[in-house]
Write a protein that binds this DNA or RNA. Structure first.
Lengths: 314, 314
DNA sequence: GGCGTTATATTACTTTGCGTTATGAAAATG
DNA sequence: CATTTTCATAACGCAAAGTAATATAACGCC
């Protein structure tokens, strides 16, 4: 017994006649007539009362029609799912990236994206360049978010630059150092440092940044945590750390952080979005890419604007 | 998008491969392979990760497979329904008959039948010869239960005789008359009568029976009710009425009734089962017919047996 | 009851798609 | 790197579904 036939039966019963049913199914009347004949033959019993003009189903016919109707509903659901998937309104995006930036900037943007695309399901994970590229290649990840130097972009990948990778020294708002105009090496010296995970690019950034401003020896009193723990420790102490400015800017209200007005060496990298150069990417991915690009462009503009204001004031 | 294809997809995902899936579906591997290709083409997206040997579904493929699996479950349900219908274990039987006999004898037998055929649904109604035959003819009834004289059997109907239509005078057990050996006309005279609905054959039976034993004028103190109300009134008073003996016999424990040992004229009729001479009757009907015939034959035997015992004693 | 209208069944024929076997290609396995 | 396993493709026959044209049956209406 074919599901298709049950659906046809259901439509005929619903519409109350072969002719109307055939019309609703965009088929000819003889076609559905024969389908019913075939079905009756296979079932071995009449599905419609014989010799009745307003074609009325038998009990068995009505029961089968109910099942057919439920099958049809599921089929419709499948069609709608495909439709939404095609439009990028449904599906699954597996996104991986460097922990601090994912937590500090992307999470909020993903939330905003889901306000417009409710049925897109995100699977977020963390990682650095090598693992991310591997995962992108073997298809366990749909896109990666990470800081990258142009020379590091793999041949088989597309990199969309989102934000300049500028780092800053971050501290709690109200930190003693924020009250000073010019900050010297000696001013910084007393405060302990929070370090990101030792295998992260940000950790190397921290080292190089401190070297660049002359700090040779620094005391680390917290390391290895995620952004949430770093932010908490930072907000509850006078510790310092190095963070992407975008992260500080985006989360400063919630985390009570601010950036010290101290130029530190920043690596020549761009925070951006890495995806395989595939043709068969999930439709939702395209939407997400343009959405994130727009959000980050907006964020960059707000950062620029604030810097101009600060410069004028200072 | 065809439900059939979704079912195939579901099976492949469930079994974890084209080969196993094809086997489970009793099809060849190339066949299901092409079905999936076609489905992917129509959907416009990959349903399985490309270039993977233990064929793994994509997110979309898995979602569609879940729907396909539910469709398959419904299809299976439909097949099982048909199967049970064929075996007479499912379906609907619309049964109509004369009220007293339906309530007094048939209802208990239907209950017993349903112990063996749980999914057979009964729609019971009441009526007399004319309406019943009409309903059988226009297909709003599957079978009728009624008393019938052989000459009354319509040409296009089959009549299965179940019980002799013998009537008795019924009263509550413990009624004053039950203590007498021989009952005379004068004994009966003081008691009021309960009459069945005036349009019922039983009402005419009552009249003729009383005339036959010489009662010319009788007092009716209750009429028109169903068997339940007749039985209640009978049990709660010293009234008399005329009932088929099978009804009294079958329900005497529950209703506290008994029959007076008084021969009354009984019409030359058989209580039986009337069905149209159709070829396409519901399979459950055949089962029901033989079941009821057996039950009634059994009932008749028990009645016969009791009569012999009573005769010997008296 | 005969008659027109309407709905369904039937017929004849074409096309589509599903089934098969045989065979090739690609990925995993050792 | 060879072997095995698993999937994709090709070629072809057949069942079934599509069509238009037409016959037939049920219903309603004088």
């Amino acid at each position: 017994m074919e599901s298709e036939h049950l659906e046809i039966l259901a439509m005929i019963v619903e519409k109350g006649g072969l002719t109307e049913g055939a019309e609703a199914l965009h088929k000819s009347q003889p076609s559905v007539s024969r389908t019913i004949s075939l079905l009756e033959q296979r079932v071995g019993a009449a599905l419609f009362e014989p010799g009745r003009r307003p074609l009325r189903p038998t009990e068995l016919g009505a029961s089968l029609a109910r099942l057919g109707s439920r099958i049809h509903a599921l089929n419709t659901e499948a069609r709608q799912l495909v439709e939404r998937y095609r439009k990028g309104q449904a599906g699954r995006l597996r996104i991986g990236g460097t922990p601090i930036f994912m937590d500090g900037v992307m999470a909020a943007m993903i939330a905003e994206f889901q306000n417009h695309h409710q049925d897109v399901h995100f699977e977020q994970s963390y990682g650095y360049l090598e693992t991310l590229v591997t995962q992108l290649r073997n298809g366990t990840l749909d896109l990666a978010i990470l800081p990258l130097h142009p020379s590091q972009i793999p041949q088989d990948m597309e990199f969309i630059s989102l934000l300049t990778g500028r780092n800053v020294i971050a501290c709690r708002s109200g930190h003693p150092l924020t009250r000073k105009g010019m900050i010297t090496l000696a001013d910084i010296e007393p405060f302990p440092w929070i370090a990101p995970p030792a295998d992260s690019p940000l950790y190397r950034d921290l080292q190089r940044a401190l070297v660049s401003i002359g700090v040779e020896d620094f005391r680390v009193n917290f390391s290895g945590g995620t952004f949430a723990s770093i932010a908490s420790v930072l907000a509850g102490s006078d510790s310092l750390t190095v963070l992407p400015y975008s992260v500080v800017f985006q989360t400063r209200k919630m985390t009570q952080l601010e950036a010290l007005p101290l130029k530190i060496e920043h690596p020549n990298r761009q925070l951006g979005l890495l995806v395989p150069k595939e043709q068969a990417a999930a439709p939702a991915l395209a939407h997400f890419k343009t959405f994130i690009a727009a959000q980050c462009s907006n964020l960059e503009a707000r950062i620029q604007h604030e810097q101009q204001v600060t410069r004028r004031r200072g």
